Amino acid sequence: MIGGLLTVIATSPWIRAALRHGAIILAVLLFLFSLRRSGERAGSLADRLETAEKANDVQRRMLEAAARRPRDRDDLADRLRGGEF
Score class of each variant (00 low, 15 high):
residue 10 A to S: 11
residue 48 R to H: 09
residue 50 E to D: 14
residue 66 A to V: 02
residue 48 R to Y: 06
residue 23 A to E: 13
residue 45 L to D: 12
residue 52 A to M: 08
residue 53 E to C: 01
residue 11 T to K: 14
residue 78 D to T: 13
residue 68 R to P: 05
residue 79 R to A: 15
residue 19 L to E: 04
residue 10 A to L: 08
residue 3 G to C: 08
residue 49 L to H: 12
residue 15 I to Y: 01
residue 82 G to D: 15
residue 9 I to C: 03
residue 60 R to D: 10
residue 77 A to M: 13
residue 64 E to L: 13
residue 9 I to H: 03
residue 74 D to S: 10
residue 68 R to W: 02
residue 70 P to F: 12
residue 17 A to G: 06
residue 77 A to S: 11
residue 74 D to W: 07
residue 39 G to Q: 10
residue 82 G to Q: 15
residue 60 R to H: 10
residue 60 R to C: 03
residue 62 M to Y: 09
residue 28 V to T: 06
residue 70 P to Y: 09
residue 83 G to W: 00
residue 51 T to F: 01
residue 55 A to V: 05
residue 75 D to I: 02
residue 44 S to Q: 12
residue 80 L to C: 11
residue 15 I to V: 13
residue 85 F to D: 14
residue 12 S to C: 07
residue 29 L to W: 06
residue 3 G to N: 10
residue 56 N to V: 08
residue 7 T to N: 10
residue 35 L to D: 12
residue 6 L to V: 10
residue 28 V to W: 01
residue 71 R to K: 15
residue 10 A to Y: 10
residue 46 A to N: 07
residue 49 L to I: 07
residue 60 R to I: 08
residue 29 L to C: 03
residue 43 G to T: 05
residue 19 L to C: 08
residue 26 L to R: 12
residue 47 D to W: 01
residue 7 T to W: 11
residue 54 K to H: 10
residue 8 V to P: 07
residue 17 A to T: 11
residue 2 I to S: 10
residue 16 R to H: 08
residue 11 T to W: 04
residue 20 R to L: 15
residue 40 E to V: 00
residue 32 L to V: 07
residue 17 A to M: 08
residue 21 H to D: 15
residue 67 A to S: 11
residue 44 S to G: 03
residue 39 G to S: 06
residue 34 S to I: 00
residue 31 F to E: 01
residue 17 A to I: 03
residue 25 I to F: 11
residue 40 E to P: 03
residue 27 A to F: 04
residue 42 A to T: 05
residue 34 S to M: 01
residue 43 G to E: 13
residue 21 H to S: 13
residue 83 G to P: 00
residue 66 A to E: 12
residue 44 S to D: 09
residue 51 T to H: 04
residue 47 D to N: 04
residue 2 I to P: 02
residue 38 S to C: 05
residue 14 W to P: 01
residue 58 V to G: 08
residue 69 R to Q: 15
residue 65 A to V: 06
residue 9 I to S: 03
residue 28 V to S: 01
residue 30 L to H: 02
residue 83 G to Q: 05
residue 25 I to C: 04
residue 3 G to K: 13
residue 84 E to Q: 14
residue 38 S to R: 13
residue 37 R to H: 09
residue 50 E to V: 00
residue 17 A to E: 12
residue 60 R to Q: 14
residue 5 L to Y: 05
residue 35 L to G: 13
residue 62 M to C: 04
residue 13 P to S: 11
residue 85 F to Y: 14
residue 23 A to M: 06
residue 22 G to V: 01
residue 59 Q to Y: 09
residue 28 V to A: 01
residue 62 M to E: 14
residue 8 V to I: 13
residue 28 V to M: 00
residue 75 D to W: 03
residue 59 Q to R: 12
residue 85 F to R: 09
residue 79 R to G: 05
residue 51 T to W: 01
residue 69 R to D: 11
residue 84 E to S: 12
residue 4 G to N: 14
residue 31 F to M: 11
residue 81 R to N: 10
residue 19 L to H: 01
residue 80 L to H: 02
residue 24 I to N: 04
residue 30 L to Y: 08
residue 4 G to R: 10
residue 32 L to G: 03
residue 11 T to N: 14
residue 26 L to V: 15
residue 18 A to E: 10
residue 78 D to L: 09
residue 47 D to H: 05
residue 20 R to Y: 07
residue 10 A to F: 02
residue 37 R to A: 04
residue 1 M to D: 15
residue 34 S to T: 04
residue 71 R to W: 07
residue 11 T to R: 09
residue 51 T to Y: 01
residue 6 L to P: 00
residue 16 R to A: 10
residue 32 L to Q: 03
residue 5 L to K: 11
residue 41 R to W: 00
residue 4 G to H: 06
residue 10 A to P: 00
residue 77 A to L: 15
